[in-house]
């Protein structure tokens, strides 16, 4: 079992529903985004091409973040999800500079003392912030808590209006993700870094 995501760049319309859904699901503090959609523009008017590139933790099979982590806080589950054990992370940020995808985020000390409206937290923030620790590195968890509850999709996949994100088992050749990767020629980002990501992009 190796959970992975296929991102269909043809489908993505850059609406950022995933970005916000991820925030809502994880209750991340201001400025912290586990996923987001980047614009990529090239050409000169009027011959312009613009593409929307959703980015998130790639949950690499050969994860540099896991390799460089001095504490073992970053670890890989059997289903391929790469997680950070909040209690073990010391905030050295070696993983931050090791991740070619720039998808690790350090929570500054004191970051959790303020919510979106300042020191007075909303009931939602009071409910969600205890799931986090400051002074450590966070990242996308492939919604491991949802997977553990038996759900089949991450929050971003669940909401994606364009169905541009598809989640499934890369080890199962008949899963939708595997079939899409075969039929549409899925590619991994920065494959030259030999990280073997679990996120594939379809052009």
């Amino acid at each position: 079992m190796r959970l992975g995501m296929v991102i269909d760049l043809k489908r993505c319309v850059g609406c950022q529903a995933c970005t916000v859904a991820c925030k809502a699901e994880n209750g991340t503090s201001p400025g912290i985004m586990y996923t987001k959609v980047l614009d990529q523009v090239s050409g000169t008017y009027p011959n312009v091409r613009k593409q929307f590139v959703p980015v998130l933790c790639n949950h690499c099979r050969n994860a540099p973040c896991e390799r460089v982590c001095p504490t073992g806080a970053t670890h890989k589950r059997e289903d391929g999800i790469v997680l950070v054990d909040h209690d073990k992370c010391i905030g050295c940020r070696a993983c931050y500079v090791a991740c070619p995808y720039n998808n690790r985020i350090f929570l500054k000390r004191g970051k959790l003392k303020e919510g979106y409206y300042g020191k007075k937290m909303t009931p939602y923030e009071r409910a969600k912030y205890p799931e986090h620790q400051d002074g450590i590195v966070e990242k996308c968890k492939f919604c491991s808590h949802r997977i553990d509850e038996g759900l089949t999709e991450t929050s971003c996949v669940q909401t994606c209006p364009a169905d541009a994100r598809i989640f499934g088992n890369l080890d199962d050749p008949e899963s939708k993700v595997s079939r899409l990767i075969r039929s549409r020629g899925g590619r991994q980002a920065l494959c030259e870094d030999d990280t073997d990501p679990s996120v594939y992009y379809l052009d």
């Binding site: 460089v68 982590c69 001095p70 504490t71 073992g72 992370c89 010391i90 929570l107 500054k108 450590i136």
Partner: peptide, 25 residues
Amino acid sequence: LYLGRPLRFWRAMSRPGSSWVSRGI
């Protein structure tokens, strides 16, 4: 001063097999 969680610094010795931070410590 740099570590986000300095009191847990000792944990950084856990992974000398793969981590240069660990080896350095």
